[in-house]
C-alpha cells in the first residue's frame, strides 16, 4: 500500500513536470491553432461578408460545396493532381540527389549548397522569375529547346502543361528533401555496407537491401511532410497562374483565399478550409496506417 502511494506520488511529479515542460506549447496551441480553427469551424456554418456580423446558415455552405459548385470540383481536381504529380518526383529525385551528394568526394560541400539554394530562396520574386523562365517565346527553357530543334510547350499557358509546370517548379526545390535524406544516409552504419561488400553484394543490392530499408523511417517522414505541403500549395497559383488556364491550377488554398479575401465570402471559405484540413488529416492517417507495412526501424 505504502509502496503504491510512493509510486503514484512519483508519477504525479512526473506528470506535473511534464505538463510544465509542455506548457509553452499548450499555450501556443490554444491561441495560435485551437482558437483560429474553432473560429473557422464556427464560421463555416455561417454566411459572413467580413463587413457586419456572421449569419448562421447551418450546413448550407457544405451542401453548396458538394452539390452545386463547379469550382470546388476544379479546385479539388487541381490539388489532387498536383499532389500526385509532384510527390513521387520529389521523393524519388530527392533520394537520388541525396545519394549523389553522399559520395565522399572533395568539393561536395559546394554542390550541396548549390542544390539546396532553390529550397532556400522563396517568395514572390522567385515565382515571378519562373514566369520569365518558362515563357514560351522568349523564355530560357524554350530558347534552349529551340537550339536543339524542339519546339517547347506553352508551359503555364497551356491547358495540359500548366499543372505539370507548377509541379516542375516544386521539383526545383528538391534540395530541401535531399538534405534530410542525406542526414538519413549518413546515419546508416558503415559496417553494414562493409559486411555486405565482403559477402559479395553489388552496389545495387546494397541499395535495395541496406540503404532503402534503413531509410524507410526518413522516407515516411518525407512522404508525410511533403504531402502536407503539396496539399497546401498556394503561392504558385497566387503569383503565376491565378488559377488558370481554365482553372487547371485553381488550387484549393487559392480558392479559399479568393473566396475569403476577394469575394467577401468568409463563411464559405471557412468551410473550404475545414474540408481541406479534414482531407489532409485523413490522408496523413492513411499513410501512417499504410506505413506499418513497409517502415523498418532498426533494433
Amino acid at each position: 500500500m505504502q509502496f503504491m502511494g510512493r509510486k503514484s506520488k512519483r508519477e504525479r511529479t512526473q506528470a506535473i513536470e511534464g505538463y510544465v515542460a509542455l506548457s509553452p506549447w499548450m499555450f501556443g496551441f490554444l491561441f495560435f491553432y485551437a482558437i483560429p480553427i474553432l473560429a473557422s469551424l464556427y464560421l463555416s456554418f455561417t454566411q459572413w461578408t467580413l463587413v457586419g456580423s456572421a449569419k448562421w446558415i447551418g450546413f448550407e455552405n457544405y451542401i453548396r460545396m458538394f452539390t452545386r459548385d463547379p469550382v470546388f470540383i476544379d479546385a479539388a481536381t487541381a490539388t489532387g493532381f498536383f499532389v500526385l504529380y509532384s510527390l513521387p518526383f520529389k521523393l524519388i529525385l530527392g533520394l537520388m540527389l541525396a545519394l549523389l551528394l553522399n559520395m565522399k568526394l572533395p568539393g561536395m560541400n559546394y554542390f550541396r549548397t548549390i542544390f539546396f539554394l532553390p529550397a532556400v530562396i522563396s517568395g514572390v520574386a522567385v515565382s515571378l522569375m519562373w514566369i520569365w523562365f518558362l515563357q514560351p517565346d522568349t523564355g530560357v527553357v524554350n530558347t534552349l529547346l529551340r537550339y536543339v530543334g524542339i519546339s517547347g510547350p506553352g508551359w503555364f499557358w497551356d491547358i495540359n502543361w500548366a499543372l505539370p509546370s507548377v509541379a516542375m517548379m516544386s521539383i526545383w526545390k528538391v534540395g530541401g528533401a535531399a538534405i534530410i535524406y542525406l542526414a538519413g544516409l549518413q546515419n546508416i552504419p558503415a559496417h553494414l555496407y562493409e559486411a555486405a561488400a565482403i559477402d559479395g553484394a553489388s552496389k545495387w543490392q546494397q541499395f535495395w537491401r541496406i540503404t532503402l530499408p534503413l531509410l524507410t523511417p526518413v522516407l515516411l517522414f518525407q512522404l508525410i511532410i511533403e504531402m502536407i505541403d503539396a496539399f497546401k500549395i498556394f503561392t504558385e497559383a497566387f503569383v503565376i497562374t491565378q488559377g488558370g488556364p481554365l482553372n487547371r491550377t485553381y488550387f484549393f488554398l487559392y480558392y479559399f483565399y479568393e473566396e475569403a479575401f476577394r469575394n467577401f465570402n468568409m463563411g464559405y471559405a471557412s468551410a473550404l478550409a475545414i474540408f481541406l484540413l479534414i482531407v489532409i488529416m485523413s490522408a496523413t492517417a492513411l499513410v501512417k496506417w499504410w506505413s506499418n507495412r513497409w517502415v523498418y526501424y532498426e533494433n
Binding site: 496551441f29 495560435f32 491553432y33 483560429p36 496539399f231 488554398l253 471557412s270 478550409a273 484540413l277 488529416m281
Partner: peptide, 21 residues
C-alpha cells in the same frame, strides 16, 4: 494525443489564422 496534436498543427493552413490573430 498531445504529441499527435502537435504534429497535426503542421497541417493547418496559415491563412485561416490571420483574422483571429
Amino acid at each position: 494525443i498531445l504529441f499527435m496534436l502537435m504534429l497535426a498543427t503542421l497541417m493547418v493552413p496559415t491563412h485561416i489564422k490571420f483574422i483571429p490573430l
